[in-house]
Simulated assay, not measured.
Amino acid sequence: MFLPLLAAVGVLLVARDAETWWQAAVLGLGVVAALVAFVWWAARDISRVALPCLSVAAVVWLLGVLVMDAHTAFYGLSVVGPLAVPQLPRHRGAAALGLVAYVAVVGAARLLITQEDVSGVLIGYVIVPAGVTAVLTGFMFPNQRFYGLVAELEEAREREAELAVVRERMRFASDLHDIQGHTLHVVKLKIALARRLVHSDPERVEQELREVHALVSDTITQTKQLAYAQRRLNLSAELENAKNLFEAAGIDVRVDREGEVDAHVGELLGQVLRETTTNILRHAQAEQVRITLSESGITIVNDGASKAPLPELRGLATLKERVVGNGGELTVEQKDGRFLTAAAFPHGRSGAAL
């Protein structure tokens, strides 16, 4: 937006002061230096061209004062200097003073070669050029800070976007683990049961194989829904599925409903129930499981827990981060052969992640 304006002003100044073609060429170099510096400054990489552009603009101002009688020859320097000086890593204040001093000293040198009125020379070659350069340079310092803040905000947004991608990938991996891990373990149990009964109870074997087929089909459907971001867990369906699995494994299961579960937290509670069911079937020698539902939470207690230290349960660890992130609490305890998993949302809160 500013580049055409800078170019137009530079062309007008060259047309005003240049009396010959070579003067126009020299003054034009100052304008070109200003435009090049501005383009690279806008690209936030002015350091690449700062020195050559400053050198060209400084020489043009020197020639304009001592040779061409062109008091507007400071135009290039008044653009390049304010753009380059605030970008210096250190000694910016000293550099700004040096820039203004150079413009003033070179302008004052006009008194050595001319018999013009002193006040006119001081105004046209010293006060105006040095004043304009000083004002523009002083303006660019807070302006540079502003652009620095904008750059930091852009970097912060980029980092947040990257973190969002990482979080989404972790969520997808966790959901995929919930689906596939749960299904494969149940399929393993049912096939093991079918192998034991293949000779003694063919009808039961056939039933188990039908259930395996249905379970695999359902898992394929859930995987597709996950891939297209359409998967939503239903707590009631997960509760019924958990009961069937525990009963099929010969585990006595009891469900207590102390209240209707808040619909806003139902999906996360369903994930906790599914992951806990898989852990019980995989890691415990349970004989009894008690599931308690309240308006804002679920508690699952089973016996048959190992007396060894609590194993690393990565699925629950991932779920804990999700539950906490949505305003809830996830408790995992192992004591006296019993294992407790409890998820609660004390204030009935849930985040957008649900």
Rank of each mutant, 00 (worst) to 15 (best):
L209Q: 01
M1Q: 12
V79E: 04
R167H: 12
S78L: 06
F339W: 15
A164T: 13
S174C: 00
D117W: 00
F246H: 09
N279A: 12
D178C: 00
S236Q: 11
E295G: 15
M140T: 12
A151E: 15
L51T: 07
Q144C: 12
P311I: 13
Q230N: 03
V205M: 06
A249P: 07
Y147K: 10
A192T: 04
A229Q: 10
R274K: 10
G297H: 01
V255M: 06
G348R: 04
P86Y: 03
E333S: 12
A317N: 14
T277Q: 05
N244S: 13
F38V: 02
G107Q: 02
L245Y: 03
L293Q: 07
I127F: 09
Q23P: 02
L354W: 10
T221M: 06
E258I: 05
D218T: 10
V79P: 01
A104H: 05
A8L: 15
E168G: 14
G325L: 10
E329S: 10
V205P: 03
G270W: 01
G325N: 01
G181F: 03
G81T: 06
M140P: 03
V198Y: 08
L313I: 07
G120Y: 02
G30T: 03
T114W: 00
V106A: 03
T114Q: 03
L239H: 02
R171F: 11
A227S: 09
V121E: 06
L12H: 06
S78M: 11
E19G: 15
L83F: 01
R195M: 09
L5M: 14
